[in-house]
Write a protein that binds this DNA or RNA. Sequence first.
RNA 1: GGGGAGGUACCCAAGCGGCCAAAGGGGGCUGACUGUAGAUCAGCUGGCGGAAUGCCUUCAGAGGUUCGAAUCCUCUCCUCCCCA
Length: 405
Amino acid sequence: MTALSPAAQLERLRRGTVEIVTEEALLAKLAEGRPLRVKLGLDPTAPDIHIGNAIVLQKLRQFQDLGHEAVLIIGDFTGLIGDPSGKSETRPSLTPQEIERNAETYRDQYSRILDPNRTRVAFNSQWLGAMTFYEVIKLASRTTVHRILERDDFAKRYAERLPIHLHELLYPLCQAYDSVAVQADVELGGTDQKFNNLMGRELQREVGQAPQVVVLTPLLPGLDGVQKMSKSLGNAIGITDPPNEMYGKVMSLPDPLMIPYFEYCTLVPLEEIRALEGALGSGRAHPRDAKRRLAREITRRYHDETAALAAEAEFDRVFGSRELPEEIPDVTLGRDRLRGGRIRLARLLVETGLADSNTDARRLISQGGVSLDRARVHEDLEVEVRDGLLVQVGRRRFARVRLGE
RNA sequence: GGGGAGGUACCCAAGCGGCCAAAGGGGGCUGACUGUAGAUCAGCUGGCGGAAUGCCUUCAGAGGUUCGAAUCCUCUCCUCCCCA
């Protein structure tokens, strides 16, 4: 256990959270002087962590560093039933083999942030799948429809007369039951999990357990600046993204997102962030420079200083002075694709994967987005292909042609 | 069980017999400019085709009416509302 006093621990844990229900309760639990069991529920889909869900994982890591115990709950059972969010598609059912295989993947992925030696991974099918229908009904009797409909996404869908499937109403209960099953002292989650986590408190109280403390972390807006970061929305920065991509994605953030990103995704001291915010507001700081720093900080956090600086240099080269990137992917082109060493340009773009279809390729050409060996080509003509030909689409997609057999 | 309203491209949403590959918005892509892949402005945004008033696929699914259907009819699946 840490030598830190309960108050000092609370002080640390509070940072970067939106709400703790309640701080008094957390303080009391910390004062018990035992390792607390901190629960975090995760989606059962393939784990691809982005810097948004990394926020809550980092909070969990902090608990670990203070000597507490992390329990990751993979919602394989809840995920198997269907879709709780209403928006996304019904999830594909996972076979037991897939679940088994995922167990390893989860450990591997999450150990990038968590301390693997202090992390327990559990699948909720273990207890939820074992329940009899009788037990399910008994569980359901612990709450009321009105209570469940208070959850804002249900309330909203109800008001808008959008479909709400019966089993979706059971989701909060399932998740709450997870807390009962592992006897959680604390449950972490994004602010969108507030209702479910609070339900855990209530259910624990119902069955005679001490109610868990709920710690809520902010949801990070995605690259579009509107929706929350999510891999499926294509607005995410993955923590395993290569440095160049990570740096570039940060640079593409809308300006107003810089401050929240500094706050949630970097270790820059709060006072410094406030100062920067003020400087930006008064025009004393240049937004581009602030964003460069942000991109460096984030890239450094998931890679290292060297990689961050290299990514910055690369970014300046390609987008600032519009020079060639350091590495250009080779694309092998079979000689059988050529006619007398030549090929129609649109075909070449498709063959090299720079365009989705012939029509797409033509579109790009006519819009002036295509260059061969740095020279713009405006017409879809037959072009001479030699080994090493540089094909470019837009500012950031390159391919070096390698002639194969 | 009865009655009513709906299911349109990546998303939202118009269209309600030909002028519909299908308005508009979002998203995406390209260009200009710049402070970056930010902001702004402009263009593009099913596929095949050198091109065409050309061909193919698409308006929940399957049939049908018609010279011609996203648009009309029948059945099926799905959603919402009202009544029971």
